[in-house]
């Protein structure tokens, strides 16, 4: 699972349903989801390109 391996996460943690977003953010759901999508795309793109490894390899706090 995320946080335990030395590899970047393979699964995309950001896939939330719009219904859940609507419940949390109401009329602002679309705005927040748009910002989150942009941010997650940037994170995924950087991880694909740079292949970062977890530091430290073993979590400091379990």
């Amino acid at each position: 699972s995320v946080g335990r391996s030395a590899q970047p996460p393979l699964e995309k943690p950001g896939e939330r349903r719009l219904a859940e977003m609507k419940k949390l953010y109401g009329v602002g759901a679309n705005k927040i989801q748009a910002m989150e999508t942009t941010m997650q795309l940037g994170f995924d793109r950087n991880c694909d390109k740079k292949q970062p490894k977890y530091w430290p390899v073993i979590p400091l706090k379990l």
Binding site: G3, P13, P52
Partner: peptide, 18 residues
């Protein structure tokens, strides 16, 4: 700093001075 995932679980960074 590079980017964060949206769940704020991981930060992607460069030139990490350890």
């Amino acid at each position: 700093f590079g980017a964060s995932d949206i769940d704020i679980l991981n930060f992607q960074v460069s030139e990490l001075q350890t």
